[in-house]
């Protein structure tokens, strides 16, 4: 291009002044220098023409109306975001909850003093295990599970014994309830109208009940119950009998 010069300080200055020139804010000596270079430098002259043209084109673009729903949509989106944020604060994720709980559980331990204590405790345990001739390596899951099952056997045996006790207990209870009902029915049948009085009477008079209990104990062939005199005593002996079983 004719008269084209290498972009130098003059071109750089021209570039710096170009926006002001297009804005119409270039006056005095600066404007003179600018116009002089525009005449001398084809590249800058072209830049001026194109930039002015581009600015003119852009001035045709009008500000757009915002879509009618935009404002509403923005408010809906932001209130949704606010709700989500509030929910996240209220209802932390499972992982956050776990972390929090872990921190709470270990908070007292996670202090230097407790760290020392823990160290000492471990040392003691190791010492005890050594004395008992148990190596730390014995405490593998396999070995532990063996210990667990042998312990479990003992527990099961104990449990079986306990079950026997409970079974006998419940059978005693059933029999007692059954005789109570029978007695009640016998008393109710003769006179329905005097039911209330009779019930009161029955509560006061423990004789029939005691008789039933005797019958029962005879059935079970337990001799201790032959010594029965009163209701309270009978219960005490019954309890004693249970302990013996």
């Amino acid at each position: 291009m004719l008269g084209e010069t290498k972009p130098g300080t003059q071109c750089a200055e021209f570039d710096a002044l170009l926006t002001d020139a297009i804005d119409g804010n270039l006056t005095g000596e600066r404007r003179e220098r600018f116009e002089q270079h525009r005449a001398d430098c084809a590249a800058c002259s072209t830049l001026f023409a194109e930039a002015s043209s581009g600015a003119a084109w852009l001035s045709e673009l009008e500000e757009m109306e915002a879509p009618r729903n935009l404002m509403h949509n923005i408010l809906a989106a932001t209130s949704e975001a606010a709700k989500a944020a509030a929910k996240a604060e209220r209802d932390p994720s499972a992982w956050e909850r776990l972390l929090k709980q872990t921190r709470m559980v270990f908070a007292p331990v996670l202090t230097p003093r407790f760290g020392m204590s823990m160290g000492m405790a471990f040392f003691s345990i190791t010492l005890v295990l050594n004395m008992a001739q148990i190596k730390i390596t014995d405490l593998t899951p396999h070995n532990l599970s063996h210990t667990f099952y042998s312990s479990q056997n003992k527990v099961m045996k104990y449990y079986e014994n306990m079950r026997l006790v409970y079974e006998i207990e419940s059978r005693v209870r059933d029999l007692r309830n059954a005789t109570d009902e029978k007695q009640q029915n016998q008393q109710n049948q003769p006179n329905q109208r005097q039911e209330k009085n009779q019930t009161r009477e029955q509560n006061q008079n423990s004789e029939p009940e005691r008789r039933q209990l005797h019958e029962y104990t005879r059935e079970q062939n337990v001799q201790v119950l032959a010594l029965l005199n009163g209701k309270d005593e009978s219960l005490g002996i019954l309890a004693k009998q249970r302990r013996q079983i």
């Binding site: 570039d15 710096a16 170009l18 926006t19 297009i22 830049l47 023409a49 194109e50 930039a51 002015s52 043209s53 581009g54 600015a55 084109w57 852009l58």
Partner: peptide, 16 residues
Amino acid sequence: KSRINRGRAELARLLQ
């Protein structure tokens, strides 16, 4: 300012 100049100029060239 330099970017504005070049942006306007490029736009004008495209439109031309």
